[in-house]
Amino acid sequence: MLVSAAALPGALELVGPSPFGVIGPGAAADRAVPPHAALQADQRIPAAAPTVDIRRTGDPANRITLVLLGDGYTAGEQELFRQQADKAWHALMDIEPFRTYQGFFNIRRVEVVSPVSGIAESESRGRKTATPLGMHFWCEGTARLLCADEAATARYAGGGAGPQYLIALANSTEYGGAGGTGVTTLAGGSPDAGRIIQHEIGHTVGDLGDEYDSAPEDADYPNLATLNADDMRRKQTKWWRWLGAESPDGAGVVGAYRSANGLYRPTPDSVMRTLGSAYNLPSREAIIEELYRRVRPTDAPVPAPGEVSGRPRLDVRPLPLTGPRQLKVEWKVNGVPVTPQSPDGSWLDTAPLELAPGRTATVTATVKDTTDWVRDEAFRERHMTRSVSWTLTG
């Protein structure tokens, strides 16, 4: 397992051990994650800071909250932090599949005031700086690896009604970051900050591995394999469903491309290999699947499923996507398909239904994400589909 940090703009380079686990408070990690060999934050600084909801797309219980925190920003530098935080999350929502699925995320900013400006940068080589989150380069002996005190970061982030991803920005113009742990990090002032977060969040959200040549020989990730295409297809493993598919970003046909470390990757290039590229199709699928492990395709229907009186409007409340891809909704009355009055199919007016006195009718709505970015149909049926029913009485 590895902690990834980009070492050179454009081409990524392996930097040290890291666990590609999951998120922060509100969700369990997929793997046992040993704590960072990170410097502890200054415990004399109280773990409280102003919190601002800068984007709310829906019920936090059924959204993933991105919590952006800053370290090394003084009171007079909070506007700088706000600007850099905005650039970071906008860069993340500018790459697929996050662009399409941005409605699955709420975004919160925590304005942590530091008594000193800046963090322990690479020239400090382990020297502690009295900042609230204890962020520093030279984490685990690697210059570009940027770590934070994860316990302190979690305290400042606080709890929430749903899962959270914690993203810590350092007040630094150096090049570096880390992903795959409880806290995703980046240097907020780096010219490459937007491209860095696109790469590092792939580790954290999609459990993706680095595809560059110097990455360790560890294929325990959805986008890395020890098998060639023929063996993958024969054993129906890894990204076998995608073999031969044309990558929508022009990166070529999905196959098994061997890196210098001996592992195979799905495409010649991707954001997990080169900053500024796109996620390949198997990686997009892995990210979408991780989102659906935490978010249901609908918010709570209105009225609540079950017996209802009168002829109410039934609203299944599917989560909206951005762009032409939308969740598909199918309505049935006593098993017979009906056409809803709503343009997007999200609600059905039951007033026109003919129902004899004393008789009942069962109305069922099935919401499904039919995106062609997912080819695992068993996963689609289990996590990306939801049916709810109401019983109307005449």
Rank of each mutant, 00 (worst) to 15 (best):
D220R: 15
V253D: 00
E307P: 01
S122I: 07
V295C: 06
G134W: 05
A365K: 02
T181G: 13
R265K: 15
A356V: 04
R382F: 01
R82F: 06
Y165A: 13
R241Y: 03
A148C: 07
G162P: 07
S247H: 14
L327W: 00
D210A: 15
I201L: 15
G179F: 05
M272R: 06
T322P: 00
P19T: 15
D369I: 05
S387A: 15
V183D: 01
D220P: 00
I107Q: 05
R56F: 03
P305F: 07
P60K: 11
A154Q: 10
N223I: 07
G72N: 14
V367F: 04
G358D: 03
N62I: 12
P268G: 02
S283I: 12
A365E: 00
T350Y: 07
A187N: 08
R293W: 04
V33A: 13
A37W: 07
T385A: 01
V253A: 04
Q198A: 05
S124T: 12
K238A: 11
P97Q: 12
P343Q: 10
A161Y: 09
A300V: 13
A300Q: 14
L186Q: 04
V254W: 07
T274G: 00
Q102W: 11
A5N: 05
L80Q: 15
S190N: 10
S277A: 14
R294G: 10
I95Q: 11
Y292R: 01
P357L: 04
L243R: 00
R382I: 00
V329I: 15
I107Y: 03
K128M: 14
A193Y: 03
G244Y: 00
I167F: 01
L8S: 12
R127E: 13
P357V: 05
A49V: 06
G262F: 08
R293H: 13
G252I: 00
P282Q: 09
L66T: 08
G162A: 10
Q78D: 10
A365W: 03
H383N: 09
Q84I: 01
K332I: 02
F379T: 02
P266S: 06
P282H: 12
Q43D: 08
H136G: 12
L39G: 13
P115S: 09
L8M: 11
I197E: 09
R382E: 15
T129F: 14
N62M: 12
D299I: 06
A28L: 14
G26F: 08
I287S: 05
R63Q: 05
E290M: 11
L348W: 05
N280E: 13
P320C: 05
E150H: 03
Y175P: 05
T129Q: 14
S114T: 05
F81G: 04
D349A: 11
A148M: 05
G177Q: 03
P268K: 00
T370E: 15
M93N: 11
E246S: 13
D94M: 06
L68W: 04
G160D: 09
H90D: 07
F81I: 06
K128P: 08
H199V: 03
I54Q: 02
V3F: 07
